[in-house]
Structures are given as C-alpha cells and as structure tokens.
Design a binder for these strands. Structure first.
Lengths: 123, 123
DNA sequence: CCGAATCCTCTGGGATACTG
DNA sequence: CAGTATCCCAGAGGATTCGG
C-alpha cells in the first residue's frame, strides 16, 4: 500500500481534505464539540447556513463517522446530533483554525487594504 | 469594537475562515512553508490544481499578506513565491489538518463503507 | 515562464413548497 | 421539528488562446 499523500489528486486523502477543510465543518464541529445539539439549534448557531446545506453537511459528517444522528419518536420528532470520538480529534484540529481567523482578522484586513492601495497606485 | 465571531455571517472573520479553510490554501502553504517556489513548480507540486485557480489563489494569498511575490526580469521572466511570517503562523495551524486527513484516511473510508452498507440494508 | 482573457460548462447552493 | 423534492441561477472553475 502506498502512503497517503494529499498532494496527489488521486489519493483518497485529497477528497477527505476537501471535505474537512470547509468552513461549515469547522463551525459545526466547533459547536458539537461543546454539546449535543438538535437540527434547528445548529441552524440558529451558525448564521448564514441554509437548511439544505446544513442537512447535506450533517449527512456527510455522519457518513464519515464524525457525528452520530439519533432520532427520538416524540411528536414532533426530535433529532439529536452528537460528536464522535473521531470527530472530537478533528474538532481539536480545526479549532485553532477558527481561532487563527478570529485573532488575525485585523492584520488580514490591514494587509488587504495595503494591497488594494498599492494596486490603486499602480493603475 | 465588537469581538470577532466566525459564527456570525457578517463578521469579517467568517470571510477569512472561508478563504483559509480551503484545500488549495492548505496544500500551497504546506509547500511554501518548506521553501520559496516558482509558479510552475507549485503547479507541479499540487496535482489537479489548474493554472487559473493557482493564479487566483496565489493572488488572494498575496493580498492577505500570507505570501510575497517577487518578479525577476530574466528572459523568460522568473517569479518566486515566498511565505511570510504571518503565513508561517497559518501554515503551522493548517499542517495538522493535512496530517489528520492523511493519518485518518483508512478510518474514514471504513466509516463510509459501513454507512453505505447500512443505507443499502435499509433500502 | 508566468500569467491575463475569453468562453463555456456544470454544480453548489438559495428559495420555495411539501411530507412524516 | 426535521427533513426531502424541485426549480433555478450565479459563480467556480476547466480548456484554450494570447501577450509580455
């Protein structure tokens, strides 16, 4: 068996990287790392995430063994999503990413402003 | 000033997260963290990355202050991309993500097979 | 060699409506 | 409440061509 290599387009790792390097995955696993949550709870927790995409993303996460889906036959039905042990290891890897974005927001915006000004000056 | 919050769609952090949580960013910064590289060198280094998308991604990375672009007036022209100090901090954050994908490839594929088999059984 | 520009395709994802 | 189904469109991105 050849070693996993994300730089190779044909390696399954590439596909996995594409899935997990996704803003919705980062945010959803960030929430679920805290506690088990219901569908609409997650929807409200992640602003701008449509119901369709939430549904798709959760199904992918469940398929990959990162979250579990539990249905309780109440009326109306209750569905709870919980993070798995595997998902928790990924969440731990993704959290620094969100924190980096939040802590470097100002630096990035400054860099963008500088870049745009230089472009403007060149034109 | 209100605190950065990636869960809020209107926060600039959201946009930044969207840009950095990207497979091409992960792979390109992973390469550039090792050494300065030229355009076609990067193109060859990341399999499946088209010239157009590479060009776009590099421009974004440069605008965000994560890489620098140096042009040398040789014939033909030489263009070198180097990671910045800021980019290096991000690369350090992204590397675990690529490693996670590579080291959990088998577990994920197993989970997917199990899931698909359960779906099949239910149908 | 390093791109910019053009064209064209395809699909991610929004809006809406309907079920169990 | 928690989805699935349908329609629809903007925009991502591949292929190709051209320029510095």
């Amino acid at each position: 068996m050849n070693s996993p290599d994300a730089f190779n387009a044909l390696c399954p790792t590439r596909q996995i990287l594409d899935r997990i390097a996704d803003k919705w995955t980062v945010l959803l696993l960030g929430l679920l790392a805290g506690r088990t949550m219901r569908f609409n709870e997650l929807r409200r927790g992640v602003d701008g995430l449509s119901q369709k995409v939430l549904s798709q993303t959760l199904k992918s996460l469940e398929r990959d063994g990162l979250v579990t889906r539990a249905v309780y036959p109440t009326v109306p039905v209750t569905v709870e999503y919980a993070i798995t042990d595997l998902g928790r290891t990924l969440a731990a890897t993704l959290e620094p990413l969100r924190l980096w974005a939040e802590s470097h927001m100002n630096v990035i915006e400054q860099a963008r402003a500088d870049f745009d000004r230089r472009q403007q000056a060149a034109a």
